[in-house]
Design a protein around this nucleic acid. Sequence first.
DNA 1: TTGTAGGCGTTATCAT
DNA 2: ATGATAACGCCTACAA
Lengths: 335, 335
Amino acid sequence: MAKPTINDVARLAGVSKKTVSRVINHSPLLSQATREKVEKVIAELGYVPDPQARALALRRNFLIALAYDEAADFMLPPAQEGVLEAIRGTEFALTVHPASGSPSEVESELRRFLEAQRPFGVLLLPPLSERENIVDLCREMGCNYVRLGAEPTGQERDFPASGDRAATAKVVGELIAQGHERIGLVAGPEDLYSARERELGYLDAIADHDLDRGPSLIAPGDYSFESGLAAGRLLLEVSPRPTAILACSDEMAAGVLHAAGELGIAVPDKLSIVGYGDTAIAARLWPPLTTVRVPTAEMAKAAARSLVQPDLAELSPSGFLPVIVERSSVARAPG
Amino acid sequence: MAKPTINDVARLAGVSKKTVSRVINHSPLLSQATREKVEKVIAELGYVPDPQARALALRRNFLIALAYDEAADFMLPPAQEGVLEAIRGTEFALTVHPASGSPSEVESELRRFLEAQRPFGVLLLPPLSERENIVDLCREMGCNYVRLGAEPTGQERDFPASGDRAATAKVVGELIAQGHERIGLVAGPEDLYSARERELGYLDAIADHDLDRGPSLIAPGDYSFESGLAAGRLLLEVSPRPTAILACSDEMAAGVLHAAGELGIAVPDKLSIVGYGDTAIAARLWPPLTTVRVPTAEMAKAAARSLVQPDLAELSPSGFLPVIVERSSVARAPG
DNA sequence: TTGTAGGCGTTATCAT
DNA sequence: ATGATAACGCCTACAA
């Protein structure tokens, strides 16, 4: 009553193992008759090829890994969803590997993971995707990889963060068009390419319109809620107060919203807030958050597909542009 | 320059394959001398045992699967986190399998997944964990499994949802103690054990205090934000309006908060809101949501550990009780 | 304490 | 179009 093996199938069908193997792998050179005969036996026995044995013989398994730094929690859900969508219906599965600790710990943890599982391919989320030693590690281990959200390198197969600068400049421009003249920024972590681009976009817009950009209008943050809360308290304390704040992540925008709530500042009447990411939280906040949608899931899906079916023509990796989502946290500048 | 195999190590160390194997697997019966000799060669060569070959020979791999229905999105992040914590530092990895579609599609998808990956163990999230055919499937495939959040069955190794009824009764009791007499409920999906328990807990408290429980005070929901929004609109329209609403999930509580915002009802001054779950969103809403914390991550961690190290004594699976988290969305009843 | 022979279930090579 | 034989890299059983 043990699981049937390829040998059982071969014996019962009166053919060789290899022939059964050919049936399994849809080899083109097989007579229709034998194929059907073998398939019948397979169905009767309920035979399923052993994945471990296949993996050994093929020298590859069917795992796609998603590796990320703890700092990437904010983009994990959509990225994961995208990968799952890409591999749905295939024989691939997703394994998830969070890294934590110091850079060298992160590297050795990832190495152990790659050694222990030997996944067929890895998706690297930022900031992991921006670290050369990590990329080198993947290459050295002979593991396919794709980088997400890193600085563009001209590597065909990577999916860089593109368009953040222009998108940010555009939202800030829209705030200005609505009469806002003192616009605060809650910046992101400096080691993230996307965060730097967003800040540059903000500066572009400010410069374009000759607006004030005293340092008191830019507060540091790390994409986390807590940092957004702290930054919000900071920015809302300066005088004259900004009438609008752009946070470089939705989580931080939620923090700013809290700060405004604490101070009794009405949003959007007295303060407009814009987030970034259009993550799950954006539409659930009150007021619903105007934000910039980053197509993380779509990028992850395309990236995973490029690992799984490298032959298929892909959407151009640079074709994933952020787009502004207007909700209710922005209004004209007060009086 | 191919990867070194056990043979290379054996040859260079001047011992047999088996001896190397014993070193790898920390066999106790080995002379210190040979062990060190072999370990030296292993280090020099950078040899790492091939996981696929090991998996084939051992007839098991090192994957823990997390299987869930789409309806379980709300508890996926903490569950995943818990599993990852449990396997951190071990040679296990996590693979994630979402199921969607009709019940029979879900079953056949899960079957294909289990066949294709043959994970060492599976964690079943509700409502998957409550479906007997799914559990049978795991058993039939000879796959270790643990159920999370299902109805208690007396099975030692499962981690049922326990304490929801009592916890719900307790929060509602506290609302009553604060003067609330018309308390609405946004119920959860009826096919979830935990949702049914929460509704029962609500009814317990209402009955205990001889309060009104007209059907107009109970609105259906499915744990989603949208259903919470709809339920909120419904409940806030009846007259006299409830002064407090308990939503059986944080997402639905966010929906109720939106409904209140649309109608210009101040929270918590005119309306108290309580959520359930203490998911990420609870602390980020404004006002911060009073809610009931469900120790999903801890349960998932313990559950995963029970798969990975079944020998170790475990925390009693029923030891994970929900606990009330007071924040700012509750106030005394107005007037 | 160590080695030998054989098996795990599949695929690749190279005949036929 | 099909089959015999040898990998793939590790582990178990048993012998020494």
